[in-house]
Design a protein around this nucleic acid. Structure first.
Lengths: 242, 242
DNA sequence: CGGAGTGACCCC
DNA sequence: GGGGTCACTCCG
């Protein structure tokens, strides 16, 4: 059950009355507040989360809901209904509130724009947020059985640059750069002070949000020795098995 | 407010908390016991009363509830729920516990029975309880504003005959006889002792449950004088007004 | 007065 | 018609 840490899910079967046998599902926030319905959950999380694919009853994200076109027709979730005061909490489900009206830049792929594609200025990327990783905050990768896949740790000298970046954000930034970029991935060349003064201008958008890491020949040597050590251990082990 | 004598209804407004402003309603029995809910009321009254149309919050009988089919779908009131010991008291609301399974005599009105209607044995009544008035115990007539209409008093020499009859029952018995019967209404001919020994057999079901009242010529004379006195008073009053 | 538990309405 | 949501009841 891919439930955020601190949250609890309960299932209660009605014991009597006309609705006996029916089960009620509710969630307990880390603060101990009992959530009894999806609208209430939405109210508590605020408009940051997109719960349209979240099935309150089962507690799982309904992947099918993303495909079934008719089902998702009215996918926008009405957060305004019956709004009242509730403590604001954070439940990491998915932070891309794509269903809400947001300012966007339209990128046309029609015939008229083809000339632009021919430009020799390198890859012509669509406009993107500078700190797009923040939209992933709280998202956890998990396997088909909903088991959360643990995240990687970064070496201590890899320092993220940017406002309020989590270590996860830094990892995401690097991973994406390695995956997408056609050039070398070297990190930010400017100093942290300069970048933080005005990230929107001073950040190198072609590079991940980490400071450049200097790799000395010492570092290379150490790594070589590590590899040799590992190989020797493997060799010994193989010998034992024979 | 059509509340039985000796009972009191209280309304308390919640002063603080999440439910501030909400009101709690409770009833005080003539014995001073505080009733806080409908199930508790039902437990105290026993299964004799049908509270399905009684609205605990307002303290009124909900006539609308008898019409709204969907609302009354589950009209049977679950007296068994959470039963425990409570002193037995009496609150007159309505004593016909129609919702409970009771042995009944089916009277067919279909074509096959029409011959019976033609019998020359006088009015062919449907089977009825001998002491049907008891079902009315505690029922009070009231006007459209729920004001209780006071009951009539009977002359002292009008003695009811039957087990546990209230003076109201006697009045109901006489009223019904005068209203329904096609023959003379004279009351029970047998002695009280004989009838009480076995009311089911010895009671004259065609007559109301009162002993025969002997009206002497003295009684007639007294009544005549009363009427004349009243007329004279009226005459005087009319003269004064001119 | 809070809160679990349930009825009932509403919308799909 | 059936589930989801809400409001209310009832009792600690």
């Amino acid at each position: 059950m891919a439930l955020p840490p601190g949250w609890k899910r309960e299932e209660v079967v009605r014991q009597s009355g006309l609705s006996a046998g029916k089960t009620d599902v509710y969630y307990i926030t880390p603060e101990g507040k009992k959530i009894r319905s999806k609208p209430q959950l939405a109210r508590i999380l605020g408009e940051t989360f997109d719960l349209s694919a979240f099935d309150f009853r089962t507690g799982r994200t309904v992947y099918s809901a993303c495909r079934k076109s008719k089902r998702q027709k009215g996918s926008s979730y009405d957060f305004a209904r019956g709004v009242r005061h509730d403590a604001s909490l954070v439940l990491p489900i998915r932070q891309t509130a794509s269903i809400f009206k947001q300012p966007v830049t339209v990128v046309r792929n029609g015939p008229k724009c083809k000339s632009k594609t021919d430009l020799k200025h390198g890859t012509q990327d669509q406009p993107k947020q500078v700190f797009w990783e923040k939209r992933l905050r709280g998202l956890r990768a998990c396997d088909s059985s909903e088991e959360v896949i643990p995240t990687m740790d970064l070496p201590r000298q890899m320092q993220g640059i940017g406002p309020d970046l989590t270590s996860e954000n830094v990892l995401q930034s690097i991973s994406a750069a390695l995956h997408v970029s056609s050039g070398p991935v070297v990190g930010q060349g400017a100093s942290k002070q300069v970048i933080m003064k005005n990230p929107g201008i001073n950040m190198d958008t072609q590079q991940p949000h980490v400071h450049q890491v200097v790799v000395s020949s010492d570092d290379v040597h150490r790594q070589e020795q590590r590899v040799q050590l590992a190989r020797r251990k493997l060799q010994d082990l193989m010998g034992t098995l024979e």
